[in-house]
Design a protein around this nucleic acid. Structure first.
Lengths: 133, 133
DNA sequence: ATCGGTGCAAAGGTTTTGCAGGCGG
DNA sequence: CCGCCTGCAAAACCTTTGCACCGAT
């Protein structure tokens, strides 16, 4: 997509700002509720369109953790995600260079050109672990 | 879920049989079209219900490769999946024991109890590579 | 005979899109 | 001003579900 001819509208600005403020990995709808406090007339469609453009242009991450809905993340340094199977929240996991290792292991595997590796984790967060005692 | 009290209906039998015949990792709808040739009156809802039960009971795999729809796989030995970003088809990748390695690397990472690791690959299949020359 | 399963159709949840008007560069 | 962007609402998609009947055990 053409990322040069994009305009910095108020809506896009606020969507990006609010996403940068949180580490909760919100869905489009969750972010919409937050953005609406600053821009009461913004529409959900506009939030979707901006999130699509921002992720296509490499300014944010679009996450699919198999929940049937996408999440978004403005943190762009390498890291993984863990989804707590108890409370459903998504947490950041420090990066360990698994990708290089995996690529090495996959060298010469069949006739595919591997261009991307998707990894995420399921688990139980600290808070939920405590509640289970 | 209760996997003891399940009945082997014609519908469930044919859904499982047809899934076992293919390596195409069909979606529910794609499998519905195939099954319909043998059971013309089966409904899409029944296909969904049976795929859900079969995967919950560990007889098949439910795959989410971030396409906005689920795929299903009757192959139950350890292996990975690669989705061709050109043609959209999903291929099997031979298993290399990445999981153990990853678990080791994640030992003591924070305060999470990691219970599952989801990995899949994006890439370009042999056929599409040829077409690109 | 029981009770899990089925077909049908409607509804649910997420995301996309057509359109006319609005505003950023 | 040009043309990207917006709000609104409808529609597109995938999946689930309520209901009355059916059929596997």
């Amino acid at each position: 997509m053409d990322c040069e001819n994009t305009r910095l509208t108020q809506q896009r600005k606020v969507v990006l700002e609010e996403l940068k403020k949180t580490t909760a990995h919100p869905t489009a709808d969750e972010l919409y509720e937050v953005v609406r406090k600053r821009l009461p007339n913004i529409s959900l469609g506009t939030v979707y369109r901006n999130l699509e453009i921002l992720s296509a242009c490499g300014e944010i991450l679009k996450l699919d953790l198999g929940e049937g809905k996408k999440r978004f993340d403005a943190r762009m340094d390498p890291h993984y995600h863990l989804r707590c199977t108890q409370c459903g929240r998504v947490f950041d996991i420090p990066y360990v260079p698994l990708d290089k290792e995996i690529e090495e292991r996959l060298q010469g595997v069949n006739h595919f050109k591997v261009t991307g590796i998707q990894i995420h984790f399921d688990g139980i967060c600290e808070e939920c672990l405590k509640k289970m005692n």
